[in-house]
Structure formats: C-alpha cells, structure tokens
Design a protein around this nucleic acid. Structure first.
Lengths: 196, 196
DNA sequence: CGTATCATGTAAGGGGTTACATGATTCT
DNA sequence: AGAATCATGTAACCCCTTACATGATACG
C-alpha cells in the first residue's frame, strides 16, 4: 500500500503527469521503490476518486495533452497520517540469494557467471549514484543552504540521506558478491575458463 | 516465480512437510525469502501436479499425519535449469525509505521514532545472525570439513556465504539508519524528548 | 476446561507484471 | 516510409497476504 504514498511524496515535491512520475520512479525515488506506468496510471485514477489528488488538463503544442496531478489538502492529510504509522520491518527478497544458496544443485559455473553480471551492474549503479551525490551535494555530507527555510533544508537533507542509502545498498551488493566470488575462487582456482 | 525454486533448494537439502518448510523459511533461507504456510501449501500442490516433488504420507503417533515432500528427478532437472538462468537485477523496495524521503510532509518526530524502532530491530537481527555464524562456523570464514565430499563442502560454503549476506544486509540497515538519525539530530539537537 | 501446538487447508482480495492498444509528432 | 518519443490507457494473469476453518493431542 505504499505506492500511493510514494506518489504523494513525489507530487508534494512537484506536480507531474503520469509519465513524468514514471520517469521519477526510474530515478531518485526508484532507488527504493519502483513502478511501471500502467500501475501508476491505475493508482492515480484511484487517488483522484479518493480526492487525494486533483487533475489539470494541460494542452501542449505538437504533443498529446497531459494530465498534471497535484496533491490536494486531503492528500496531504493522508500522507501525514501514513508517515506517522510505525510500519513493520519488511522482508527482503532476492532470487539471486536463492540461487547462491542452491548453487550446488546445478552448474556452479553458470551461477558464478550470473553473480559476475550482477556484480558489474551494481558497481555501475554505485558509480552512478556516487556521481549524483557529488554533483548535487558537492560540499560534503550535510548540505546547508543560505536563504532556505528550515523545512526546505530538512527536505534537502532527506533527499541526500536517501541517496546515501542507495549508495550503501549498492555497496552491500558489491561487497557481498565480491566475497562470494573470492570464497569460491579460492576453492576452485582458475576453473571458469572465462578469464585468465 | 522463485518460491518454487526456493522450496526445491530446501527440499534438496532435506525432505520436509509443509509446516517444516514454513519454519525453515522463517530461518536460514528466510534471510532472503519469506513465505506463509498458506502459500507454501498451494505451491507444493502445484509442484506435485507438475511432478517436481513426490509426497509420502507419514503417520505420527499423537499427531495428525504429515505429508513429507521430496524432490523428484524432474524437480532436480527444473532446479538445475533455473539455476542456470541469468535472472534480472531485482528492484529493492522499502516503505521506510519512502517515509524517510517524505518526512518533511508529516511530523518528523514520529518518523524519527519509527527509524529508531527499525534500527533496534535490525541491530537485534544482526546480533542473532552473528551468533549463528559463530555457532555454526567457529573456525573463521571458509569452513573446511575433513571427510566431506567436494560437493558437500561447496554447499556448506554456500550456506555460510548466504548467512554472511544476511549479516551484511543488517549492517547496511544499522549503518544507514544510524547515519540518518545522526544527521537529523545534529540539525535539531535534543528535541525528541525521549532520551537524555 | 481452556489454551497452545501440530498439521493442513479454503476463500477473498489487493498489488504488481506483462502484453497489447491508440494516436499524434518528430527524427532519420 | 519507418522508427522513436510523448502520452494515456485496457486486459489478463500471477503472486502474495489476510482472514477463516478444521480436528486432534498435549499441557496447565
């Protein structure tokens, strides 16, 4: 039930159309929440019925009209209500972890190849996120803005800290998968036949 | 589609009933995959129809009969086939991260309280997993068993490494949430009113 | 006598993914 | 002329969660 609230957060930062929201979910918020455009459109429709968002039809030249959504007073109340909820510690699911655990019941060489691919992908993401934090927050950890309200400063800090979480998560993957490969290469040295 | 394969891995290690499987999913494999007994029963039924597992009715004294499931040849083939699949890098979802990002649109005090609760829970899990690895693998990192086949040794290494992943994941949470609390307490010192 | 545990299941509903559909404009 | 992008949507399906149901034995 968090997609509604992830959308409310995103629209609170800035109103957007369904497609613009989809792009945002591929970026910053997407570090910890993902959604396809189909689902976003459906949920936006439901949210409008509930009165959490309002639509404004924006005609565009040379492009189809877009429906720009903005948070209503009721939507803001709902977001505040949800933010106060404790929320359970969620379960983490990973197919890759299941593959690691079961590797001895298949061809280990192929599992190791999969791990190498995932490791490369997480390293790429880590580099990307690191670049983002250097670009958006160049003056070290906690950003301070002159002439910004306390609320704006606190929100900027939140954006920074969630980005830090994305970096930490990628580091978790890189470190773990590296440990996995090292441990298994010690056991069976130079048997992959792929490199070296 | 990984629950079937997680069950195949678990049953390959040792045959079990639905309830026993449920308990296993609350422990070791549950670090990275969870399932309720309802779902396990349903999936076991489907797997039996597909011929991946076979059932043996085990009468018990003083308790209801249990249905012990074991992997068939076809099930082993399916598991090996699935293990060879590359598999996409999965999306990580966290409601807590959405709450962190949106904290400035609600009462930050309550979000901070939630973070503290989650942090405590992850610290507890970390201590538990650390205890497990010390109990089951006391002789340092890569376990070596005399008189065990190479396949058994490789599988023991896999069990160890997945446990290491569980530890690393809890460390990720503890470190990130600690960074979050520190950063926000610097901004607003001693305002929670909870401790000190 | 009530509660907990063992053990297996059904039913209902929500959330999410995949595939497909549409229609206009801009780029190659 | 064909492909790509902008923009919104429908339909089918699967996975998973929550709530409820059953029936026996062991425990206090």
């Amino acid at each position: 039930m968090a997609l509604e609230h992830a959308i409310l957060v995103s629209l609170s930062e800035r109103p957007a159309s369904g497609l613009e929201l989809t792009r945002r979910f591929d970026r910053s918020i997407g570090f910890f929440w993902s959604a396809t455009h189909q689902q976003i459109y459906r949920v936006l429709g439901r949210m409008e019925e509930q009165g959490w968002v309002r639509v404004r039809h924006v005609p565009q030249h040379g492009r189809p009209d877009k429906k720009e959504y903005a948070v209503t007073g009721g939507g803001g109340d709902e977001l505040a209500r949800w933010l106060a909820e404790p929320g359970p510690v969620e379960a983490f699911r990973s197919e890759l972890a299941v593959r690691l655990r079961g590797a001895s019941y298949g061809e280990r060489r192929q599992v190791l190849a999969t791990v190498e691919r995932h490791l490369a992908e997480h390293a790429t993401r880590l580099a990307h996120y690191t670049h983002l934090v250097e670009r958006d927050f160049p003056r070290g950890a906690p950003p301070r803005f002159d002439g910004a309200s306390p609320a704006e400063q606190a929100h900027a800090l939140d954006v920074y800290l969630v980005l830090r979480g994305g970096i930490r998560l990628q580091e978790f993957w890189v470190d773990w998968l590296t440990e996995y490969l090292d441990a298994h290469h010690e056991t069976r040295p130079a048997a992959t036949g792929a490199d070296a």
